[in-house]
Computed example of a mutant assay.
Amino acid sequence: MADRHATGEALRLVEVSKTYGTQANPVHALRRASLALPAGTFTAVMGPSGSGKSTLLHCAAGLDEPTSGRVLVDGTELVHGSETAMTKFRRSRIGFVFQQFNLLPTLTVWQNTTLPLRLAGQKIDTGFVRDVLDRTWLGDRVDHLPAELSGGQQQRVAIARALVTRPNLIFADEPTGALDTRSAREVLAMLAEAVHTLGQTVVMVTHDPVAAAFADSVVFLADGQIVDRLDRPDAKTVAERLTHLGEPSPAVAVGE
């Protein structure tokens, strides 16, 4: 697989807000969040429970529509029209990795990995798929069913499944939350390799400072606002920053 380092800007949020509830009793999950991420970078998103982490990810990925503001993926603004059009856009530009592996139990590693291509009616490049599976240390497991794999191996199948569609942007929501420490490190190393070797852009929501330390930078949320950013993070510094997120701080625009 040739290196494919992307250039330019992979993701931009412009004053994105998301409000749930009623006009009389609104819940402000996101408050005018602005974010710009260069292509080929690994960003962790952290914050206390209820800070807006998952809402930010869902709005950025087109899974939820912002109440106000703009989201651009590879310079193309997400416009929420028909669900069919949005699904097609996500399928061609975006990959997903979740805490739950979401593998089909009756399909082999190969079949689970190539499922998005088959659903999209795309031709399967078997050489590329084999290369992805080799890079995710699954080359000798292609005929195994999910039940025959460890949790870490199942999550690596989920990463391979995201990679085979050649997305420019991968969103990972607590991808190591269901894994033991060793498996978690393997999965995080795979995501880092996808960035630094394949030129993907990864945005990962996590509560774990050790997981965040695998990223190039960490964006911190509190009360629906982006309040801080840390480049070249280490676990100790990330943990220290998290303990101070409740202190008053102006919202910041990240990556401007």
Rank of each mutant, 00 (worst) to 15 (best):
L104S: 08
T106R: 15
L107V: 03
V109L: 06
W110M: 10
W110L: 10
Q111G: 02
T114Q: 06
T114W: 09
L117R: 11
R118V: 06
A120R: 04
G121L: 09
G121T: 06
Q122G: 03
K123F: 03
D125P: 05
T126W: 02
F128E: 11
R130E: 11
R130Y: 02
R130N: 13
L133E: 04
D140V: 03
R141L: 04
D143Q: 15
L145Y: 15
L145W: 12
E148C: 00
G151D: 09
G152E: 03
Q153I: 01
R156H: 10
A158V: 04
A160E: 14
A162G: 13
L163G: 07
L163S: 09
V164A: 13
V164Y: 14
T165D: 09
T165V: 11
T165F: 01
R166K: 14
P167M: 08
P167N: 08
N168V: 08
L169P: 11
D173I: 01
E174D: 04
E174G: 02
A178Y: 01
T181E: 09
R182I: 02
R182P: 00
A184V: 00
A184L: 00
A184R: 01
R185L: 01
R185P: 00
R185S: 04
V187W: 04
V187I: 03
A192S: 13
E193Q: 13
T197C: 06
L198H: 15
L198G: 04
Q200I: 00
M204I: 02
H207P: 02
D208G: 01
D208F: 01
P209K: 07
V210M: 11
A211H: 01
A213R: 12
F214Y: 15
D216I: 02
S217V: 00
V218P: 13
V218C: 10
V219Q: 13
V219W: 13
Q225N: 09
Q225I: 01
Q225E: 15
I226N: 05
V227A: 07
V227D: 08
R229S: 07
R232G: 03
R232K: 15
K236A: 12
A239W: 11
A239E: 15
L242H: 06
T243M: 11
L245S: 08
L245R: 13
G246T: 13
G246M: 10
E247F: 03
P248G: 13
P248I: 15
P250S: 14
